[in-house]
Design a protein around this nucleic acid. Structure first.
Lengths: 149, 149
DNA sequence: TACGATATAGTGTATATACACATTATGAAG
DNA sequence: CTTCATAATGTGTATATACACTATATCGTA
């Protein structure tokens, strides 16, 4: 195919329409905001999420925890390392087979408590910036994407 | 604050409502789908995006290219490395000051051409899975997030 | 022409992500 | 009680992301 023809197709079909591209771009932009806000606490947005989920779910295997977060199991395991190193979580091996599970520590809970108002600020400022209607659209869309198999 | 009180706040305010969390989860899930689809071509979804954008924009500085993609400049520079190593793009230093710019090569264009129908399949299957209404909501939401400053 | 201001790119380090492959604990079947 | 299937975790390697800091090319001006 001629170069100009390929470019034309890209312009018509892909540009501004690729779901993967738009998702990744949005995630980069929004993650930077949450990371920036949480910097005084010493954790990043993703770590806030992991601490929060670990606090809320009952002790399950790391595999189940990864599933709940839509995160590849090996990604979760590696993401837990900095949290464990900093004493924010502890990982025990109490279950059956080789099962291990993560639990938040008192220190981790303190960090979460400090992070909560800052998270609220970041979340609120974004919601206000987008407006109520767009905010709902964003959440509905992400809910649907998060449920994709 | 008591532990139970913090958990309660997390459950009420954060769980299922954090935009950063939902975005990152959706991105992980959807990126895996596009990556999986493109595997026969030997590129990942993000690389397809970069090749596509590089093909479509006129030669600009790497800084401008990063801006267009909502990508941190240093991230872009590092993401270009595998593409350059594999001969899919070339980076020239033709501009003013230290300016450099990326251009797609013939090989890169061939890869894009092969990738196009596969990208269509991935995009279509996702659109069908979501349905037309949800698909529009998803794109409207992501468009708004991508425009956030 | 020398020199400082500025625009641009590049590097060090750390977290985030995931596939392919390897390891290991435990229960079941013989 | 040994072996084997299975469920679970762990490691090697590669890309993706970004902040802090560094390096350098060029322009304007003294």
């Amino acid at each position: 195919m001629k170069k100009s023809k390929i470019i034309e197709k890209l312009k018509q079909d892909v540009a501004g329409q690729c779901a993967c591209q738009k998702l990744r771009k949005a995630t980069r932009i929004i993650t930077r905001r949450y990371d920036e806000a949480l910097k005084p606490i010493g954790i990043k947005g993703n770590q806030f999420t992991m601490l929060s989920v670990i606090s809320l779910v009952d002790a399950v295997t790391l595999t189940e925890l990864a599933d709940k977060m839509g995160m590849e199991r090996t990604t979760l395991i590696r993401n837990l390392k900095p949290l464990e190193r900093d004493g924010l979580i502890s990982i025990s091996s109490e279950g059956f087979r080789r099962a291990r599970s993560a639990e938040i520590t008192d220190k981790g809970l303190n960090v979460l408590e400090e992070a909560l108002p800052i998270w609220h600020q970041a979340q609120d400022s974004l919601r206000i910036e987008l407006g109520a209607n767009t905010w709902k659209i964003v959440h509905d869309g992400l809910e649907a994407l998060g449920a994709v198999g």
